[in-house]
């Protein structure tokens, strides 16, 4: 991203009266030297790959490669179809999709890292579930992916998107912020509202640690993808309803960076702290070693 901050992106959006997605696309043309058509086509491939990664876990119970987890996306999806989930149809279907993509990842399925493999369920689930329920076209979803990417680039440039550096706030937190902003623009909200949604999503998971049981991308990663997409939809809704973040996006990202740096190594993907270090976590880790 050529612009270094949300402030800069907003100024560029205001000046040309465009969305964050459009601004990101134009900057990428300039940065990479590739044509607009080529970049749009490439992003459409990402959308198709995301859509293909949602289905397997919903249509049958998947089992992870380690044998540790699986089947929850199928279970929850069936419950949603049979009854009336408390979350309501949008969040419930998004949560089922997020579980599904994450389970597919753990089962060595083909996914799109977004921004990472550990957080790969959040953005696809947000866009595909809202897209389906609100009748959005693939063209609109592709532009929303550019919005998501623009927000992700700002986080990567000013903090980190790696769990080993910044904890889960950097992976699932970043994905939530990307998804929230993308949903706001998909639903016709302004760039300002999109950054408020992104800021609020990060604020709710600031300090979240990365503590995978046995070092594998399963426990608690898969369920954090489900809560991550619920968080994104809620924050997008708040922003669309006119709620603003008192702490602006750029400051939130800077806080995330500092919190990540202050985090002990045990809580940054080493499987030495948090849930990984609990009695149950240790027992599960032992089980897969056999």
């Amino acid at each position: 991203m050529i612009e270094a901050s949300a402030k800069g992106v907003l100024a560029a959006c205001d000046e040309r009266d465009i969305s964050i997605g459009e601004c990101t696309l134009r900057e990428e043309c300039e940065r990479s030297g590739k044509s607009r058509e080529r970049l749009l086509a490439r992003m459409e491939e990402m959308l198709f790959a995301m859509r293909a990664s949602v289905r397997p876990g919903l249509s049958e119970p998947l089992r992870s490669t380690s044998g540790l987890t699986g089947g929850d996306a199928f279970r929850y999806h069936r419950y949603c179809q049979d009854g009336e989930p408390l979350c309501g149809p949008v969040i419930a279907s998004a949560a089922a999709m997020a579980l599904s993509v994450s389970e597919y990842n753990a089962a060595m399925g083909r996914i799109v890292a977004c921004p990472t493999a550990g957080s790969c369920g959040i953005v696809p689930a947000a866009l595909l579930s809202v897209g389906e329920q609100r009748g959005k076209s693939d063209g609109e979803l592709v532009m929303a992916l550019f919005t998501a990417s623009g927000v992700g680039e700002l986080i990567a440039q000013n903090a980190t998107i790696a769990g080993a550096q910044g904890g889960c706030q950097a992976e699932c937190g970043s994905a939530s912020a990307m998804a929230a902003a993308a949903l706001v623009e998909l639903m016709g909200g302004s760039p300002r509202q999109a950054f408020h949604a992104a800021a609020m999503s990060i604020k709710t998971v600031l300090g979240l640690v990365c503590d995978p049981v046995g070092g594998l991308v399963e426990i608690p990663c898969i369920k954090r993808n489900a809560s991550g997409v619920a968080n994104a939809i809620l924050c997008a809704d708040l922003a669309l309803g006119g709620v603003e973040s008192y702490i602006p996006f750029d400051d939130t990202v800077s806080a995330m960076d500092k919190v990540g740096r202050a985090m002990p190594a045990a809580l940054r993907e080493t499987a030495l702290g948090g849930l990984a270090a609990t009695e149950a976590g240790q027992r599960l880790a032992q089980k897969i070693k056999k």
């Binding site: 940065r31 992003m43 990842n105 921004p115 440039q157």
Partner: peptide, 24 residues
């Protein structure tokens, strides 16, 4: 501060579960 492009954030398309342990 690194310079990130769109497809450094969305992508790669890869077989899971881990970008470092599987894709790498």
């Amino acid at each position: 501060m690194g310079d990130y492009g769109v497809f450094d954030i969305i992508g790669p398309v890869m077989v899971g579960p881990s970008s470092s342990h599987t894709a790498g």
